[in-house]
Design a binder for these strands. Sequence first.
RNA 1: GCCAGGGUGGCCGAGCGGUUUAGGCGGCGGGCUGCAGACCCGCUACACUGAGGUUCGAAUCCUCACCCUGGCUCCA
Length: 386
Amino acid sequence: MKIFNTRTGSKEDFIPQDPFEVKAYVCGPTVYDLCHVGHARTYINFDVLKRYLISLGYRVTHVQNFTDIDEKIDQRAKKEGLSPREVAERFIREYFFDMDSLNVMRATKYTRASEYVPKIIKITERLLELGYAYRSGNTIYFDVEAAGGFGELVKDLKETIVGEIRVQGKRGPFDFVLWRVTGEGFDSPFGRGVPGWHTECVAMSMDTLGETLDIHWGGKDLIYPHHECESLIAKALTGKRFVRYWVHNDFVLIEGEKMSKSSGGKAYIRDILKKYPAEVLRTWILRSNYRTKIEYSEESLEEARVLYEKMRKAAAKSRGKEEMGQCAKDFAATFMSALDDDLETGEALSAVEELSDLILEREVEGAWRIFSLVETILGIKLHTPP
RNA sequence: GCCAGGGUGGCCGAGCGGUUUAGGCGGCGGGCUGCAGACCCGCUACACUGAGGUUCGAAUCCUCACCCUGGCUCCA
């Protein structure tokens, strides 16, 4: 199949290192709040990629993390009179509740940053030894310049555009934190404190999947600084290519703007599911390719509902017919080749819509097999009653 | 600056190599109406940012410009 690699900025043929196994790492959420539609999009899109790869015959080893060390978690804990651990545990449970409702397949393994602190410390020590890190006051920084600078994903980063990032004590403006001594948190040779975000994912992915990953997936907002920094750390550590295919999905916008930690206006999955069935939400997300921006609105969800209902009725009508006729075969081919081209789920769905229209007018031989592809690969259940 | 996406008739918006070049809004004419609206019928737009190229043939593919949108602190 072809997949868009952020590193090269182009669609490439997907070839994993091992011809039978795909090693994929997905950046999971920071567990300080409920998941919103943006999370739904990221994990549903990856879920479809995974299901598609499985349908091609690959064994997919999928590792996903929970970032459970974060100031936002501490803030929330303080606000609710709980421990940070209790807050993290709660939102991990909520994450699974939402993703299970959305029929997202479970990962092979879930990791938590807090369980990887010893490995993070080891990496930090190693970077210090190698001269890619330095201590300044109470902070260990990664020396971006010494490691050869950015460039894996971000081509030309202008300081003035990114904002005021000069901090006293840093050697270079883009140097980032590997460990901060705060007096609280985790014991380490550098002093009691907390690890930097980027090291966490390097520690977790390398430990579970090895030094080179086939796919590293995440929302587009993670390209810089998170993935760029991860890549630099990993390269400094091993000298090898860290990730073969970097894949990023675009945002869900609300009233033209991105949802983020700092701006309000989040649409929680929980709330959407009170008004729309999970299958409709999934259909809505998959109507667009993962690399386009989508605008969240009730109108477009209603459109997805219409499409979903049409598919459901057509699926019900075509149940139990054995052999695929020529017409069904053609549609199946269109469906698969759409997914093969950079996961064009929208095109795949429009083929299904066209087929559904035909079926509702007349008979199509063996069409149920296409609907079973919709269920197994797109993960949209069609047997649910209205 | 860098990355991604896009520039189609007055406007919105399909089209993704080739028969009448969607559809909608608007506009025009008519029907219905005491008049108007709504509604119905018909008519109307051979348009594809610019320049090269590939091709028997391009809005559709390639190259280079120009312009617009979004993103580049935390964030999926």
